[in-house]
Design a protein around this nucleic acid. Structure first.
Lengths: 159, 159
DNA sequence: ATACTTGCAAATGATTTGCCAGTGT
DNA sequence: ACACTGGCAAATCATTTGCAAGTAT
């Protein structure tokens, strides 16, 4: 293993693919947009617009939040980005991968999991059976008590 | 049937029960708090703090939004009220009934259903099976495409 | 060259906080 | 009487909008 394997690359391999989508949709590829795309590829969890603007804590050049919001909106329209609300507070953005991520979060401890849609097929099926809805947990997560917190519920108050 | 049966009562029968909870928890029963409670009992769907402050469109006395937020927070702590986020925009509040309501909303047309938890047992079971989480859809709804929108998806673009 | 973008300032929407006068107990 | 509340102003947080200057094509 080289250091490269230990250091998470700042620029994911397909940032270029994303810029191509931008260009082919008739939009310009600017520095600000590239930074936003790179930030989302570099992040290992959904990030806020603010965090992207700060350059992910110095790992990337900083940009104005305004532009970040504008870029995120555009990228979201193009299907390159999606955002999720994991609770109160700012929305969080992540690149939209083909294997789109859905979320399950614990109400009590805040821990959350990004899960492959496949694991949610049973849940989706149950929703379809009960309501006829085609459910998706990409924008709002499934909220509940995680196994750990279910366990401690009732044993003691609030650890 | 008398007119009383046709006119939805502004004050639900157990507003008094709620004030009792307030008092027994050591809080004062004030005009503002009573109005907030009455508003939530009078509303037939979750309402915003703003709407409560406006007196539900004139049906009740108006109050300052600030106080409404403070009252809602207190009532929520006492378990008398809960709030849900049905999409972007302000949170919506409703009285917390023993048969607590959960929500299912359509991503496309915005239609939503308040459902009795019982109807969600299958879904909850599927979530438990897949993740071990004890899910609740009171704070964030289940989001998806409703049967109508599932039907029109793919047939035409955006009606 | 020029239409699209950025960055900054300022507006907006939702909610919170500080403070003093008012009131429930 | 006195601590708890309500209302108003102002602060804060998240996001959007207006506009002049900058730049990708």
């Amino acid at each position: 293993m080289t250091t490269a394997a230990l250091t998470r690359p700042l620029v994911a391999p397909d940032v270029e693919a994303a810029t191509t989508v931008l260009r082919e949709a008739g939009h310009r590829v600017t520095a600000a947009r590239r930074i936003v795309i790179e930030a989302l590829y570099a992040a290992d969890a959904p990030v806020t617009a603010e965090e992207v603007a700060e350059g992910l804590g110095g790992r990337l050049p900083r940009t104005d939040v305004t532009s970040v919001y504008r870029s995120l909106e555009l990228l979201e329209q193009l299907g390159l980005v999606s955002h999720v609300h994991l609770g109160h507070g700012p929305g969080r953005y992540a690149r939209a991968s083909r294997e789109r991520r859905e979320y399950v979060i614990c109400d009590r401890c805040g821990a959350y999991e990004e899960v492959d849609p496949g694991r949610l097929d049973g849940v989706r099926e149950a929703v379809r059976a009960a309501f006829g809805y085609e459910a998706s947990f990409t924008h709002f997560p499934i909220v509940g008590l995680c196994p750990d917190c279910v366990g401690s519920e009732g044993r003691h108050a609030h650890p």
